[in-house]
Write a protein that binds this DNA or RNA. Structure first.
Length: 287
DNA sequence: CTCGATCCCTGGACGC
DNA sequence: TGCGTCCAGGGATCGA
């Protein structure tokens, strides 16, 4: 489950190993995870990988085409790569001349060649980078929605790059229940949550990410941050802060791990619709 | 419009 | 040992 720290780790590795290299040819196998395989096959060969960046959970391979030094690049182009759950993008040295190979058993990933306006528009769909977002912007993005905070953290149009692991870890650290509505969070809680999220993401990047399924970086090495998980995957185990058993509930279709003592449940949330069904119907007719 | 549930896909864990 | 079942989850899509 590559999230921001894992993708950052892979992107940094690729920046070292393949930036500056020219792509001679492209060979496609299964293409159902690609936006437009024909375009990739047609446009990518002959380009040079200028650099490799992370954008949310995407890697952006910035491409440039051979041209005279005097003439400017017509438009920016990039290969967008999302690792999904099981994706891996890594150089292989066994074959000639050398390969940058993408593998993804489950094909939850995504690959797309985008340029110019199309590329710009695609990137605009995503929210703020969690490592760069200011306290004010973070607060505004969260408190403007009544959705549950866990769902908001996972929403890539709110913040780009946070997934299930780091959402649970930061909520545990900040002592906020995952089912709490974003709109109900106090500014103080929002400040704590942003601090926790950034601290955890930085630490995880330092440790080259979490390897909980089979994540390995571009050098084939696993990360170490899974040793620091305090909530994620710890159902029934003791909370590192208070000793109570960690619980698991489903929010936004995902497992959410939390401490029922350190992260107190919101007062009357989650089942509102059910308990006010009759009144609710009468009220809606007024509108 | 906003929010939540469902589905896609396959390998690994688990039970019998 | 082998087989069936369940679960993991990012994001698109659909429906309330």
């Amino acid at each position: 489950m590559p999230e921001l720290p894992e993708v950052e780790t892979v992107a940094r590795g690729l920046q070292i190993s393949v930036a500056g290299r020219r792509i001679v040819s492209v060979t496609l196998r299964k293409t159902d995870f690609m936006d437009d395989p024909d375009t990739i096959e047609r446009e990518v060969p002959g380009t040079q990988i200028a650099r490799v960046e992370r954008f949310g959970k995407f890697m952006l391979l910035r491409l440039v085409r051979d041209r005279a030094a005097s003439e400017p690049e017509a438009s920016s182009k990039a290969l967008l790569v999302h690792l999904g759950m099981t994706g891996n993008l890594a150089p292989h040295f066994a074959e000639q001349p050398r390969e940058l190979r993408y593998t993804d058993a489950r094909r939850f990933g995504r690959m797309a060649y985008l340029a110019g306006e199309t590329l710009a528009a695609e990137l605009l769909r995503f929210g703020a980078d969690p490592l760069e977002v200011t306290a004010e912007e973070f607060a505004k993005r969260i408190e403007s929605s009544r959705a549950r905070i866990k769902a908001l953290l996972l929403d890539q149009t709110v913040l780009r790059g946070v997934g299930n692991i780091y959402a649970d870890e930061s909520l545990w650290s900040a002592g906020i229940h995952p089912a709490k509505s974003g709109a109900k969070l106090k500014r103080k809680e929002l400040a704590r949550l942003r601090q926790a999220l950034q601290k955890i993401l930085r630490k995880a990047i330092q440790m080259r990410g979490s390897s909980i399924s089979d994540f390995v970086d571009a050098e084939g090495q696993p990360g170490d941050y899974q040793q620091h998980h305090r909530a994620y995957g710890r159902e029934g185990k003791k909370c590192f802060r208070c000793g109570r058993a960690i619980k698991r509930i489903i929010i936004a279709g995902r497992s959410s791990y939390f401490c029922p003592a350190c992260q107190r449940a919101p007062h009357r949330e989650g089942r509102i619709r059910k308990s006010t069904k009759r009144k609710g119907r009468a009220r809606t007719s007024k509108r």
